[in-house]
């Protein structure tokens, strides 16, 4: 165990040097250019028991998202809105370094950043998901399971949530006698207003790369995740890791996120539509 761990670290140092040499020439270990994401694959409706589901592959990172709908009380202070809850779990299947147990700091950050990207973009029109104002609302759970981890789980998970919500068929609930919830067995599409696209960049040395693999993440000094909506507006940002950015770098990265986000939004829509 300790030997293999040591061997990994030596390999990482050698790989890091190779990676830095390549990056300075504008290339990456897997042949991509610095601002090129890995291939994206989406399968829709793979879990029949869920009200919506999707499996997203971003390179070798693989995430399944499932939508489940219940009714419940609204959140405090948001009495006239349905409730949306996005969670994420990195399963022990995902890599040899993951152990089962309560979520660690990184997983909590992952879930919260993905949730923030979806919530702040107001992707779902939550005001349409109210049954009895202030009392009973739709509660939409989007639970994500990361089944294989190879870097950039932020974007892979976010795309999975977006794909699952876009293709979901929500149950239609009805209210009788003021507060009794009846499932009408009918279905309705989710009230989608915009398609948020999350893009994550890693800074290695002075190079900024889009969509890092786990090898690249092992070498990064800092990370930034930027979410844009269909209008090209910024809706959520999170800087991570222990490095830093200059103001100039942030402005450049945010511009790339806007332009690349548009391309990926088109591709994501296309993949979802071809899957339905």
């Amino acid at each position: 165990m300790s030997l293999s761990k040591k061997a990994t670290i030596i390999l990482e140092h050698l790989r890091k040097q190779q990676m830095l040499d390549l990056l300075n020439k504008g290339k990456r270990l897997d042949g991509r250019s610095l601002d090129e994401p890995r291939p994206l694959e989406i399968e829709i409706d793979i879990i029949k028991k869920a009200d919506g589901s999707a499996k997203v592959k971003l390179g070798n990172s693989e995430v399944i998202a499932g939508v489940k709908v219940e009714t419940g009380e609204p959140f405090e202070g948001l009495e006239h809105k349905g409730a949306l809850i996005v969670t994420a779990e990195v399963l022990p299947t995902a890599s040899p370094y993951i152990e089962p147990g309560p979520p660690d700091e990184e997983t909590i950050e992952l879930a919260r950043v993905v949730d923030r990207g979806i919530r702040e973009s107001e992707m779902l029109d939550l005001e349409k998901l109210v049954l009895v104002p202030g009392k009973i609302v739709y509660t939409i759970f989007v639970d994500c399971s990361i089944i294989n981890a190879d870097g950039n789980l932020f974007d892979a998970t976010s795309y999975a949530v977006v794909s699952a919500l876009c293709s979901s068929k929500l149950p239609v609930f009805d209210i009788q006698d003021g507060d009794k919830v009846i499932d009408t067995k009918q279905k309705q599409p989710a009230p989608i207003t915009t398609i948020p696209i999350s893009l994550t960049f890693a800074k290695i040395g002075n190079n900024v790369i889009l969509d890092p693999t786990s090898e690249e993440e092992a070498c990064m000094n800092s990370r930034i995740t930027i979410t844009t909506n269909s209008n090209g507006e910024y809706t959520a940002i999170q800087k991570g890791q222990t490095g830093s950015f200059t103001v100039e770098e942030i402005k450049n990265i945010s511009e790339i996120a806007r332009i690349k986000g548009e391309t990926i939004r088109g591709k994501l829509k296309e993949l979802i539509e071809s899957g339905i």
């Binding site: 702040e120 507006e233 910024y234 809706t235 959520a236 800087k239």
Partner: peptide, 8 residues
Amino acid sequence: LQLDGILT
């Protein structure tokens, strides 16, 4: 750097 909310 964090952001929540919509900005052009």
